[in-house]
Design a protein around this nucleic acid. Structure first.
Lengths: 335, 335
DNA sequence: CTCGCATCATGCGAATTTCGCATCGCAGAC
DNA sequence: GTCTGCGATGCGAAATTCGCATGATGCGAG
């Protein structure tokens, strides 16, 4: 009924005041442009151009329409351009959503590695809690979700409602381990003990309700009747906040090995409890069923075919960590 | 490239969140609407609708475009409606342009007469000075120009530049006569004389430069060497302003017979000078070469074929005016 | 006044686009 | 599982649009 090209044509005609010249500028024949202007006049319901004299003049209706056409076209073309730019950005970039902790522990190294492999690609990481990441992913706001999951599935179930990513294809791209740590006493032994006297209540530094790491820890505690005497005096939604509390000697916290190995090496934090109390976590990357943008598909394909080592490069942790922490932990890190 | 119907479609889809239902509302098939939305998405350069779940959801790009589409469509359809209304008004009405004096003397009666003959028709009269009327006419702002012209053509030439109406078809639809009038002295004779003593300077009440009636009077004065001693102490752009001055005894003015016959009958104004000093004017209606709207063409056709009497009806002036003013003037009025 | 030039409108056949019908694919409900 | 609702798509018909050639008109030079 109304093609916006007619409006563009009309604007050019109003500027040149000559249909033939305007036709050249618009890359159509004079007859074509003449008819398009007629179509526009037919749409408007009134003559827009006074053709009696050369150069052409706009009628009153023409002037009115010209104003509106300029503004409407400007807005429409403007939104078109921004949409295309956004889309372009989206197609060339790979967007991840991940819980806050991974922005600190995992992504800094991993992004560097895949940047090197994929060449110049814009990478963006959005941090949120796990349900937030999942819904962003569901809405197509990101290409992948990367998160830490435990073998028991406590983390995926912990959100209360089913998460989309449960039914999505995924691949393991790293390891993590939560270890119960305490500041040392003067003698180098833990200030707080998990396995000393079952009747002695131990201060436990908990993750906040919304932090998915906490769901794994709570799951572990629920399975171990010998740990019921733990009571949490403090909680914190960030692992690094808990680490600071543990360093200050406020209690025992299950902290990620990747953020605490330096503390362990330097003796600022020491492990407590038996080795069974460590929680092994997978860093898993989830993708949607539908096809992704080119770069994102390329990443997925290389992750699944080439394996992780090719992308991750040399071990992420210094070897001397083996001398100060449990041998099993070191193996985890090297895997 | 972008049909605004696509935007209308998109708005309806955004409201119904269901392409099939939107298709019914838009009176197209589901497949047609589906493809139109695809066309719009192709234009925008990004998906606008998330079709994965029912009901449909707009993408971020979709929401952005929806806002702009609503506004742009509102403006475009708004201007379209006003243009159509204006045009409709224009086609159903007959628009005249005329010098100010005719709005007072001629149109009140004449409009009544043609209204009765043409049936319900919107009639509009725009008053301006003669050049203004002519340019309004040239721009198509009015259908007809009605003006007073003298036999010598002084009025048509008086504008300084050639007027379009000079080369237009026209028809005489009335008469007018300018008569030199003065307030009477106590004895009933004119207070100011045009023909008494050539050496006696007489106060002359002139029309302003822009008033076309003045051009006819000036032309007459220039032809009559015996009138050179006239000097204008006052001038006024409106004939009625001059009449008031004349009634106050300020001098002699060439005034339209139609506005002064009551003054003459009642002896408030008396004629001065010899009968040759009257100026006969034609009320002429001018039409453009191009075709006019239906109603306007109908008026022209009836004016040219049926003559004026049929439209003008009985004589416009009371018969007793014959007893108090020159017989010749009465004939003019009765004609 | 006539001619030539510039300009816009229009008839016509070809190319392109759009439409509706029928069908397919997919997802959710029962 | 089947059934149902919904959107996408292949295909041929219909409508629209386009370019070419030509006609009509106005303006200025000779």
């Amino acid at each position: 009924m109304l093609d916006i090209r007619w409006l563009e044509d009309f604007i050019v005609v109003a500027e040149t005041r000559n249909i033939t010249k305007a036709a050249e500028l618009r890359n159509v024949t004079q007859s074509g442009l003449s008819r398009r202007i007629q179509s526009l006049e037919n749409w408007a319901g009134a003559p827009l151009i006074d053709r009696r004299h050369a150069p052409l003049e706009l009628t009153e209706a023409g002037h009115k329409l010209l104003d509106v056409a300029n503004e409407a076209l400007g807005r429409l073309n403007g939104i078109r351009r921004t949409i295309r730019e956004d889309q372009n950005e989206r197609l060339r970039s790979i967007r991840f959503a991940a819980p806050h902790i991974l922005s600190v522990t995992f992504f800094p190294r991993w992004l560097l590695a895949i940047q090197a492999k994929l060449g110049s690609t814009r990478l963006s990481v959005t941090s949120d809690n796990l349900p937030g990441c999942a819904s962003l992913f569901e809405d197509g706001g990101v290409d992948f979700v990367v998160c830490l999951v435990d073998a028991n599935g406590a983390i995926l179930r912990g959100a209360g409602r089913p998460l989309v990513i449960e039914r999505c294809a995924s691949i393991s791209i790293g390891k993590e381990r939560l270890i119960p740590l305490s500041a040392p006493a003067a003698d180098g032994k833990p200030l707080h003990w998990l396995d000393l006297n079952p009747r002695l209540s131990t201060s436990y530094l908990a993750y906040s309700r919304e932090c998915s790491l906490g769901w794994a820890v709570e799951d572990l505690i629920a399975r171990r009747p010998d740990l019921v005497q733990l009571h949490s005096l403090y909680d914190n939604s960030l692992a690094d906040g808990l680490r600071t509390m543990a360093l200050a000697g406020l209690g025992v916290a299950w902290l990620p090995l990747t953020t605490t190995h330096n503390d362990i090496i330097r003796g600022k934090l020491v492990r407590t409890g038996d080795p069974q109390l460590a929680i092994d976590l997978d860093v898993r990357l989830y993708r949607p069923a539908q096809r992704l943008a080119k770069k994102a598909e390329e990443l997925w394909s290389r992750l699944t075919t080439e394996g992780l080592g090719a992308l991750l490069g040399p071990a992420a942790f210094p070897p001397d960590i083996a001398t100060t922490i449990h041998a099993e932990d070191v193996q985890t890190l090297r895997r």
